[in-house]
Design a binder for these strands. Sequence first.
RNA 1: GUGGGUGUAGCUCAGUUGGUUAGAGCACUGGAUUGUGGUUCCAGGGGUCGUGGGUUCAACUCCCAUCAUCCACCCCA
Length: 455
Amino acid sequence: MVKNEALTPKGTRDFLPGEMVKRNYVFKIIRSVFERFGYIPIETPAMERVSTLTGKYGEEGDRLLFRILNSGDFLTGISDDEILERNVNKLKSSISDKGLRYDLTVPFARFVVQHLNEITFPFKRYQIQPVWRADRPQKGRYREFFQCDVDVIGSNSLLNEAEQIQIIDEIFKKLGVKILIRINNRKILSGVAEAIGEADKMIPITIAIDKMDKIGAYKVNEELAVKGISEKAIRELQPILGLTGSVEEKLNELENKILLHSKIGRKGVDEMKKLFDYLTTFDLKVDPVFDLTLARGLDYYTGTIIEANSTEMKIGSLCGGGRYDDLTGVFGLKDVSGIGVSFGADRIYDVMEKMDKFPEETASTTTLMFVNFGEKEEIHCLSLLAEIRKSGIKAELFPDKVKIKKQMNYANKKNVEYVALVGEDEMKNGLITLKNMKTGVQSQITLDELIEEIS
RNA sequence: GUGGGUGUAGCUCAGUUGGUUAGAGCACUGGAUUGUGGUUCCAGGGGUCGUGGGUUCAACUCCCAUCAUCCACCCCA
């Protein structure tokens, strides 16, 4: 069946013209805000060396990496024994040394190290490109999707954190998408883990408590126990997670009691206080909340972590990011800290489509179309067409001499605003019959009048 | 990686406790309108019912497998 042969791979999609107009609208707004804050664009290749990508995202991330089979005889240098051993993971790395990028942050870290001498710090860049994950597709989850990243690298200032939140606020305000911005700090989470005597289990603890509002405290505790957290530690964790009050009250409680003996934890509290101080001076549409249960799974985050979710539709996060103190370290560049967030263009599109947030742009591709009456008329119309295009009007000539009805139908479907009919009569007296497709009204006018009328 | 739902025309879907000729809307083609679309009316084309096997006198319908797709979990944009 034809149907089954003409399909995009699982989790990937084509974009029709109507969808592209809307997608470009989203990209345009995101890009313009990025640039207004002084960020400049870069691009990196779709594929990276596997060694660049692995070990940065945690176990789950490595599993979701798309790998590219080596070209040529990829079995060169591999013994029969190794193949018979059937050790997939080992074999994988021998027959594939490239992979599709999983996000834009890690390739950016690689980029910074590679081009160290060509960039100036602090380096503020934005990057809008597709990324790939071998995940199982579902609602709001694709195997190929666009991320829009903004990062500052080479500055420790919390002003950057504040700016990133300003950018998030600005972009969603412009798009008309209602969101909740949550902020937390990995250092606080680290301190909490330390305070309850499970310092080395920070990651499993954070991943478990991240699900608090989703599955409830009981299930979270169950998961913690499964991950090997002691009963005593779980008990000690409860009052911490149940902290209430204002941001300030929560932070004070953490600083003066829970994290009193955790140096790293108190550092985190300091950072949060300073960040919120900055934020109060801004005029934000959405007030970010301090959410101790926000975790974020990616391994490389070390400080502030940020996430934005739609408050109108259940679809995962629309935007996420945070500070990474040593992502360039693995590429040989120590002590360079960065922070950035990533906007999920496809999810943002989905929310806007579902909630009907796209503006009513007519977005017609062509303003004027000439009907094709035949060879003599074609030549005549082509010179008119050139004049019309020169004046900046989007215009085209139907390429085939087929029934007028068919050509009109095409114009109608394509949302063409005006149709020009120039046949024998019009050629003779130097006029153009111009039809307004919306009103159906038509009149015979000169070229100059036509240009005047529709430009 | 784990669990569940759905596969019938190009698209969205009906199809009775299994019963002989599988339907609708939209789209497409032609006509009413040989230089006029979007509305209306008439006519027409298009299906090995995802694929393979099984049960049965008989399968779109029941069973198994397989593939595709969607949803949920894990994790994430």
